[in-house]
Structures are given as structure tokens and as C-alpha cells.
């Protein structure tokens, strides 16, 4: 067990644990926009910056992203010092200029006292803040149908060549894990459209309710070993079947 000083308080940490996790466990709030527990940290939004120093650094300190910085014995961390606050505010101003309609951005900007963005605001700006949660989710957890393409200000999230992807299984995980709801999709009845590809959602064998897409069911069967038959029945009908089995057992 190691020990760090977090905002003036001694805190026990496991070696290698990331500072963000330590802070959250201690009830200290650190803003993030690109952090998602299901995927590895990326350090893209830079909002989780904290100031770290050590006694032997003789007063020198640096700003590091807490989502990626491993806790190590003797580290002195401040999560809301003046330089931290100033840099976070500077980053939020830049995000406000890009995505003024993104709810979490506006909320954080308000918290950090940004009344007016110092840069020209793109009022019709893209809600996508390139946090890369969707791409990390898709690439690391699902089928890797989307990726970050191009670079710099032109960077965006897309399928290869921005064409309907053969890899996409229509699970909507990208859109639903997006913190700013920036990925458009349609999901009506048995039709689902995302990334330019339209899927048919399999209807429940029992009642006809939508379940998952045939593509997703095939992927789950293949990669997770869960039979497709079970998947294409809705939860209520499955429960009813379970009930019927109980009733039979009881008799």
C-alpha cells in the first residue's frame, strides 16, 4: 500500500491506480468528458488535469491527466489548484466555441464561470467533441466498425470511407454511450438506421416485439457463445416460458 497527499489529505492508494479513480473514491469531483469505465482512458479531453508534485521536486510541479497518471507513493496532488482551474477553463472555452450546444460542455462551462466564450462560437457546431468514447467502445468491445478519421480540426468519427460498414452490427452502443448525443440514429419499430446502414431488428418469436438485429445476435453467438435462439425472443416471452417451466415442475 502506498500513500499520497490528495488535496492536503493523506490517502492510501494501490500502486499504479489512476489518480482519477482515487479521487472519485475519496468523493472528490474531477470533471471529465472522455472517461468511460468500460474502456481504457484516452486523455483526450484534458479536463481531468490535476497538479502533481513531490517534496524532492523542490517546488516544481506539473499538470497531468488524472485519468492516466498512476498514483505513486509520496505524490502530492491538488485537484483544483489555480493552474488547474485556469487550464480547465481555457479548455472549456475552446470546447464552447466548437460545440456550444453540447449539454455536458455547457454545464461544465457554467460551473467554471464562463459567461461569454472569448472565441467565435460555431452556433450550429457539431455536438461531437471527439472524446473518442464511441470509437473506443466499438473498437475494443464490439466489432470495430467506426474509427477516427482525418486529423486536426478535420478529425471526425466515421466508418471506413464513410460508407455503410460491413462490420457494424447496429447495436447502437456508440450512439448511446456518447456523452453529447452527437451520433444520429433512427430506431423505430423493427427498423434501425445508423452510420448510413439500415438494419432490420428481429421480432420476438413469441409476441413480435423488437429484440436485437440479426447481425448483433450472430456476433454475440460467435464471439460470446450465447445461442442465437435465446436472443431472438423478447425478455417478457422468455420469462413467460420460464414461468411455464416452473408451473410444470410444480405439478
Amino acid at each position: 500500500m502506498s500513500e499520497i497527499i490528495l488535496n492536503g489529505r493523506k490517502v492510501k492508494v494501490r500502486k499504479g491506480e489512476f489518480l482519477l479513480a482515487v479521487a472519485r473514491r475519496e468523493g472528490i469531483e474531477i470533471p471529465t468528458l472522455c472517461q468511460h469505465d468500460a474502456v481504457e482512458p484516452a486523455g483526450a479531453c484534458r479536463l481531468c488535469l490535476v497538479e502533481v508534485t513531490r517534496p524532492e521536486w523542490e517546488g516544481w510541479s506539473k499538470l497531468v491527466t488524472s485519468c492516466l497518471f498512476p498514483a505513486e507513493d509520496g505524490l502530492i496532488v491538488s485537484t483544483d489548484s489555480a493552474p488547474v482551474h485556469k487550464t480547465r477553463k481555457g479548455i472549456l472555452e475552446l470546447l464552447m466555441a466548437r460545440s456550444p450546444n453540447a449539454v455536458p460542455v455547457r454545464e461544465l462551462a457554467r460551473q467554471y464561470g464562463i459567461e461569454q466564450c472569448p472565441y467565435p462560437v460555431q452556433h450550429d457546431g457539431d455536438n461531437c467533441i471527439l472524446c473518442d468514447i464511441c470509437t473506443r467502445v466499438c473498437q475494443n468491445l464490439v466489432t470495430g466498425a467506426i474509427s477516427r478519421i482525418d486529423r486536426g480540426v478535420g478529425k471526425r468519427v466515421a466508418t471506413p470511407f464513410a460508407e455503410p460498414s460491413t462490420d457494424c452490427v447496429g447495436c447502437l452502443a456508440c450512439a448511446k454511450s456518447c456523452p453529447t448525443a452527437a451520433i444520429p440514429y433512427e430506431d423505430e419499430g423493427l427498423r434501425r438506421t445508423i452510420w448510413g446502414k439500415t438494419f432490420e431488428v428481429a421480432s420476438c418469436a413469441g409476441c413480435g416485439a423488437p429484440t436485437v438485429t440479426a447481425e448483433q445476435a450472430a456476433w454475440i453467438e460467435q464471439s460470446k457463445g450465447v445461442s442465437r435462439e435465446d436472443q431472438l425472443v423478447c425478455d417478457r416471452c422468455k420469462a413467460q416460458k420460464t414461468a411455464a417451466a416452473y408451473q410444470k415442475l410444480a405439478w
Binding site: 468511460h36 468491445l141 447495436c171 452502443a173 429484440t211 436485437v212 448483433q216 454475440i220 436472443q231
Partner: peptide, 9 residues
């Protein structure tokens, strides 16, 4: 990630 795989599974 709200993909509903668990519901199907």
C-alpha cells in the same frame, strides 16, 4: 454501453 446484449443473452 447500452447495447442490449445482456437482454438478448
Amino acid at each position: 454501453i447500452r447495447c442490449q446484449s445482456c437482454v438478448a443473452g
